[in-house]
Design a binder for these strands. Structure first.
Length: 287
DNA sequence: GGGCATGTTAGCAC
DNA sequence: TGTGCTAACATGCC
């Protein structure tokens, strides 16, 4: 389910909770972690991962691009002491990337071990944090420096302002669609929001960045920002069996609408493949 | 059974 | 160095 608006929605739910069936994760203490699919834990052996998160409290939840960032602190305030680390007060950061089918939910401990549960963190008061991931592409990281994981990414697609976006874009040479999907350019845009942003900006997905005017580039920067904000306002999009959540899919103008009339001109939306990704656009409206 | 899928990355060619 | 293509990762739905 993972593009920036969906990940932002997950971060908000983990911070604030979502009704009595989903209390907040923020502030809770991890009693114990269980790694059910070790390949999902990256950069650290699973036993060390389990040892190092035990007794830590989730102090803050943030996001960069499509990465969720959980700040873990020693739980001196009533939690179990962290006996494995030389300096238990030093914050640790646990990052998660949902890739294609990952989900991260606080659930009752009794419901934690679903068939596709890959990592489960047992919390206080009978709750658990569950990383469920049918396709096993998702990843969980543990590090003392967030930049070890996110250092090569571009600026977060919502933090970058349209002027900065335009300047970066005008320095590129390739086609617009692959540039938007390149997480080293800006972090957070995926296939759906790339197509929707290009439609909003009236720019063709295979248009070369080098042919854009400064005004074109600025318009695309504003379109990306607006599309992501619209997605967040709808709590993200729901993706069939993978992610029931928001309702942004009801607002798609081109994505998944091949053959249907363009909402602006009525001509059929076209689907092509660009950089191995399915790409939807209106040939009359986007140039 | 074939085709498709929201993502990322290594390897390779130019 | 930048760009772009292919394959791979692994599974489930239509």
């Amino acid at each position: 389910m993972p593009e920036l608006p969906e990940v932002e929605t997950v971060a908000r739910i983990l911070r604030e909770g979502s009704g009595p069936q989903r209390p907040p994760l923020a502030g809770r203490v991890i009693r114990q972690a269980r790694v059910l699919w070790p390949r999902e834990v990256s950069g650290i052996p699973a036993p060390a991962f389990v040892r190092r998160v035990a007794g830590r409290r989730v102090a803050a939840i943030s996001r960069h691009g499509k990465y969720l960032i959980l700040e873990l602190r020693g739980a001196e305030d009533g939690g179990v002491a962290d006996s494995s680390s030389a300096s238990p007060r030093q914050p640790l950061f646990m990052l998660a990337h949902l890739r294609m089918s990952g989900r991260l939910d606080v659930v009752p401990e009794a419901d934690a071990f679903t068939p596709h549960a890959r990592v489960v963190w047992l919390l206080d008061d009978g709750w658990a944090l569950r990383f469920d991931d049918a396709r096993k592409f998702g990843r969980v990281y543990l590090t003392e420096r967030v930049s070890d994981v996110t250092g090569k990414l571009g600026p977060d697609a919502l933090s970058v302002n349209p002027q900065e976006f335009a300047a970066r874009l005008l320095a590129k040479r390739g086609a617009l669609k692959p540039i938007l999907l390149d997480q080293h350019f800006i972090a957070g845009v995926g296939n759906i929001y790339a197509d929707e942003s290009l439609f909003l900006a009236r720019l063709h997905p295979t248009r070369l960045a080098a042919t854009l005017t400064a005004d074109d580039a600025l318009r695309l920067g504003e379109a990306v920002r607006q599309t992501l904000l619209d997605g967040i306002a709808a709590n993200g999009a729901s993706f069939d069996w993978v992610y029931p959540g928001g309702n942004y899919q009801e607002h798609f103008k081109v994505y998944g609408r091949a053959g249907l009339p363009c909402v602006d001109c009525g001509r059929p939306v076209r689907r092509i493949v660009v950089g191995q990704r399915s790409t939807h656009f209106c040939a009359a409206c986007q140039m």
